[in-house]
Deep mutational scan, measured.
Amino acid sequence: KFGRVHERAEGPAKILAIGTATPFHWVDQSSYPDYYFRVTNSDHLVDLKEKFRRICNRTMISKRHMFLTEEILQKNPNLCSHNEPSFDVRQDILVSEIPKLGKEAVLMAIDEWAQPKSKITHLVFCTRSGVDMPGADYQLIKLLGLSPSVQRVMMYQQGCFAGGTMLRLAKDLAENNKGARVLVVCAESSAIGFRGPSEDHPDNLIAQALFGDGAAALIIGSDPKMGLERPIFEIVTTAQTFVPNGDCHLALHLREMGLTFHCTKDVPPTIAKNVESCLIKAFEPLGISDWNSIFWILHPGGNAIVDQVESTLGLEPNKLQATRNILREYGNLSSACVLFILDEIRKKSGREGLKTSGDGLDLGVLLSFGPGLTIETVVLR
Score class of each variant (00 low, 15 high):
K100C: 14
A109T: 11
S349M: 11
K75A: 15
L354G: 03
H253M: 11
D359R: 03
G372S: 11
L45Y: 15
T20R: 05
Q240S: 05
L79R: 03
L228K: 08
A9H: 01
G102W: 08
G314A: 04
L366C: 10
H249D: 04
L339H: 15
V306I: 01
K142M: 09
L45V: 04
Q74N: 00
E284G: 10
P77C: 01
Y32F: 13
T356N: 11
L254F: 10
A239K: 12
P317C: 05
F283W: 04
F67I: 13
E234S: 01
K103A: 06
D290V: 04
G19T: 05
Q115R: 07
V275A: 05
S86M: 13
F369Y: 13
A114D: 11
L101E: 01
G258V: 05
E352Y: 03
V378R: 15
G102V: 13
V124P: 00
S147A: 03
A13W: 02
E84L: 00
L373H: 14
T22C: 08
P285H: 06
E344A: 07
I345E: 08
Q308D: 10
H6C: 03
N57R: 00
F24V: 13
K273D: 06
K347F: 00
Q240P: 13
G358V: 04
V275W: 06
D47G: 11
V106G: 14
N57I: 14
C56A: 10
P116K: 13
N76T: 11
E112C: 02
I110S: 02
G19D: 02
A304G: 13
P12F: 05
D266K: 00
P33L: 10
T40F: 00
G102S: 12
L298W: 12
F24A: 14
V243Q: 13
R255Q: 15
G135V: 08
P148L: 03
I61Y: 00
W291S: 10
I294V: 14
K265A: 12
R8A: 11
V5D: 09
L48W: 01
V131D: 11
I55K: 07
E276I: 02
A13S: 06
E329T: 05
I288G: 04
A13D: 03
K142Q: 12
E316M: 03
N274L: 12
N303K: 10
L16F: 09
C278L: 13
E329V: 03
S86T: 12
V236I: 10
I271Q: 05
K347P: 02
S293E: 12
F340H: 00
S349G: 08
F242Q: 11
G258L: 13
G145V: 06
L327G: 06
P300D: 09
G370R: 14
L327W: 08
G130A: 12
V236L: 13
F295D: 06
S289L: 05
L107T: 08
K14G: 05
W296K: 10
E234M: 05
E316D: 12
H262F: 03
G11A: 06
V131L: 13
R54Y: 00
T270H: 09
L68P: 08
T20H: 05
P371F: 05
I61T: 10
V236Q: 11
E7W: 02
H6N: 09
L298R: 04
E310A: 09
R255T: 02
F233E: 05
P12V: 02
E376C: 01
G135D: 09
S349W: 07
Y32W: 04
N245A: 04
V378E: 15
S349R: 10
S335Q: 00
A322S: 05
T40I: 11
V236G: 07
R4V: 15
H299T: 04
G350C: 08
D359V: 03
P244F: 11
R53K: 07
F295V: 13
N76C: 13
L327R: 07
A17K: 00
G372F: 15
T356D: 06
V236P: 09
H122M: 08
V267Q: 13
R346G: 01
A114H: 00
F340G: 09
P285Y: 04
G372R: 11
H6A: 05
K103W: 09
T260L: 06
L143H: 14
C337K: 13
R54V: 04
I294G: 09
F87W: 14
N303S: 07
I93C: 12
F242D: 13
G19N: 03
E284P: 02
I280D: 14
L146V: 06
D266S: 06
S311P: 00
P317T: 10
A336I: 00
E376L: 01
S118C: 01
D362S: 00
I375S: 15
F242W: 10
L333K: 03
I235V: 02
N83S: 13
E284C: 07
T238P: 05
H122L: 02
T59L: 11
W113R: 05
A21W: 04
Q91L: 04
I18N: 04
D266A: 10
D247A: 13
Q29D: 07
L320I: 12
A251S: 09
I110N: 05
L123T: 07
N76R: 11
N57A: 12
W113N: 07
P85L: 13
W113S: 02
A21C: 04
T356K: 13
A136V: 12
E7T: 03
A336H: 01
I55C: 13
A114V: 08
V379W: 08
E310W: 04
Y330A: 05
T237Y: 09
Q74H: 08
E84P: 04
N292T: 05
V365H: 14
R8K: 12
F261K: 15
E329S: 03
Q115I: 01
R324Q: 07
L252K: 15
V306E: 01
L79V: 07
L286T: 13
C80R: 12
H122W: 06
N274S: 13
M257V: 06
L48G: 06
V338Y: 00
W296S: 08
T121W: 03
H44Q: 09
L320R: 02
C337I: 01
L298A: 02
M60F: 00
Y35F: 02
R8Q: 06
L143A: 14
T270P: 10
K103N: 13
A136R: 10
S368F: 02
P244N: 04
K355H: 08
I18A: 01
N292D: 10
T374L: 13
P317I: 02
Q115G: 05
G19V: 03
E316N: 00
N245K: 00
K142E: 12
S118M: 01
G372C: 00
I288R: 05
A17M: 05
K348S: 00
F52N: 01
R328S: 05
L286K: 06
Q240H: 04
F242E: 13
A251T: 10
D343A: 02
H262W: 12
I120R: 11
F340K: 11
L327Q: 11
L363F: 12
G372V: 10
R53P: 01
F125A: 05
S42E: 01
F295S: 03
K63I: 11
